[in-house]
Amino acid sequence: MHTESVHITPYRTHAWVLITLLAFTFITITVTWIDLSALTVLIALLIASVKAYIVLTYFMHLKFESSLFRVFVFMVLFIYVLVILFTLSDYLFR
């Protein structure tokens, strides 16, 4: 069952992805030196999410898989975020 065309990611792409990820790591560390109080966590999470998105898309090859995989990943993350929000509906309103 290997009829569908195989996508080969060039080495160069992987290298660029790595450099981007390292750059984001650098940014997230630098940002902690600036005091943004409540925003700090949010920014850290935002940068981490961008990094995760890159890893999922390129390293984990989601960009080139059938859309079913992307739908699943999205669904799982969506459900997980809802779980956190519903749990916080208890903790934030006690």
Binding site: A44, L45, A52, F59
Partner: peptide, 15 residues
């Protein structure tokens, strides 16, 4: 790797 991407800022970078 993905998990570490979240662990790192949440544990090390919240000073």
């Amino acid at each position: 790797d993905l998990i570490w991407i979240f662990l790192f800022p949440l544990l090390y970078l919240i000073t």
